[in-house]
Design a protein around this nucleic acid. Structure first.
Length: 272
DNA sequence: CCAACGTCCTGCGTGC
DNA sequence: TGCACGCAGGACGTTG
């Protein structure tokens, strides 16, 4: 479900509610949720530990524990965390349950079970394969130009490659390319210097705006406290197949790239 | 090294 | 009504 803005929203909400609480007990309700070790081992490793911080890297959530280990979680397509009996905790798609100190409950709900949680020693570099954080200074036109130069695939597909830039998914890839007036079909290595600068600016502008609006709520995405994001009101192309482009009036087209939907305006985003 | 494709899951809407 | 199929905000392993 979530891309960088949604995960950032979740992390900020979780931070307010669960930092400095201890894990009193827990239950894993689906066998595929914990990766690498058994559910039993996972639970015994986090039990009694305090959550010192909640942070984000790409689309991963990191719960820093006070025993030198990180509890890392990915929401997959449909995962979400519900805290303290907030709306949604009673879902039949509950996959994990944690009782925290102070009478607080943390519940992981995930219909499709693509979400994951695992435990790593802090600083082992489990997330080291991820590319730069798009909202940090690490992402600039120079970095992007070098990264794109060796890729012989469409720019849309490259934008979603977490090893290049971490956090962009299917919705924001389309929105970013519309903002940059670039065709999603253009081969990555064929972007000009000028286009690369534009793309860099669009990545930052769109993601920053989406974070400010608490992400995009389509179908069932909700923040931890069940508030909707508001970026869906800003979507210019995603999910708008056949509708008129707000800029030029031409119909928005849907194509499939790397088995994912891409939406774009063939007039505003001409190849070439 | 790179690119393309299948797979892990469940549920919903659509059309026959 | 039933059923097959396409679609869904992701990532990774295998194959060529």
């Amino acid at each position: 479900m979530p891309e960088l803005p949604e995960v950032e929203t979740v992390v900020r909400q979780l931070r307010r509610k669960i930092v400095h609480r201890r894990v009193v007990s827990g239950r894993i309700l689906h066998k595929n949720v914990v990766e690498g070790i058994s559910s039993r081992k996972f639970l015994s490793s986090i039990k009694g530990k305090m959550i010192q911080a909640v942070t984000r890297r790409g689309k991963f959530i990191i719960f820093t524990l006070d025993n030198g280990r990180d509890w890392i979680s990915h929401l997959g397509m449909t995962g979400k965390y519900v805290v303290c009996g907030d709306h949604g905790g009673a879902s039949k798609h509950r996959r994990a349950y944690f009782s925290l100190s102070g009478g607080c409950e943390l519940i992981f709900v995930d219909m499709r079970v693509f979400g994951k949680m695992l435990l790593v020693d802090s600083g082992t570099g489990y997330l080291a394969h991820l590319g730069v954080e798009p909202l940090s200074d690490d992402l600039d036109a120079r970095y992007l130009r070098a990264a794109l130069a060796r890729r012989r695939i469409p720019i849309k597909t490259v934008l979603m490659d977490q090893k290049m830039v971490a956090g962009i998914g299917n919705i924001y890839a389309s929105e970013i390319l519309f903002d940059a007036r670039l065709s999603p079909r253009k081969q990555a290595h064929r972007l000009t210097r000028k286009e690369t600068v534009r793309l860099t600016e669009s990545i930052k502008r769109i993601l920053k705006q989406a974070v400010e609006l608490n992400g995009t709520t389509i179908s069932d995405f909700r923040g931890v406290d069940d508030k909707s994001g508001r970026f869906q009101e800003m979507l210019k192309v995603y999910g708008r197949r056949g509708e008129s482009c707000y800029a030029c009036g031409h119909p928005i087209r849907r194509i499939v790239q790397a088995q994912r939907s891409t939406f774009y305006c063939t007039h505003c985003q001409r190849a070439g």
